[in-house]
Amino acid sequence: MSILQEVELLKRIPLFANIETSKLKLLAFTSERLNFRAGEVVCEQNEMGDSAYIIMQGEADVLVSAGGEPFRVATLKRNDFVGEIAILCDVPRTATVRAKTDLVTLRITKDLFFRLITEFPQMAVEIMRVLAQRLEKTTKDASRAEQRVRELEEAASPDPS
């Protein structure tokens, strides 16, 4: 895949939809294309990260472990953007990303990422939108989980009557 093809792919990602071609070329040219085999880990939960990834081909699982066995919280596919939280707020990776199939990614370093969002506000807005959607989903999940916990508690506790 050449840079020009990569640029074509990037254009289809909503995040980059409104960005000039020359900037996308810059993004593609200064980013490393990184292949992962099925099963290889893209990033590890709790480790510090210095880059984010755009998935160009293949699928990846997002796994979270809270003390015990890791469980899958999402599956990423083509055009998805992952790993931006760790570089945005300098926190350790919040989840492990593991290639589900053979995976082709574009690795965007922290420097480049910050440069792009400071120069192209539309990109920052787009990222905000994506993050907000995730937050909304997380909140929904959380309230549903809470609901479920309450139900279970009620079921388990003896009838007061």
Binding site: S22, K25, L26, F29, T30, D111
Partner: peptide
């Protein structure tokens, strides 16, 4: 041509020149 297209907008001396 490609370099001009990609890098012309960057301020002179930007680290990308050195790196890429």
């Amino acid at each position: 041509e490609m370099m001009i297209e990609i890098f012309a907008d960057l301020p002179p001396g930007h680290e990308f020149f050195e790196q890429f």
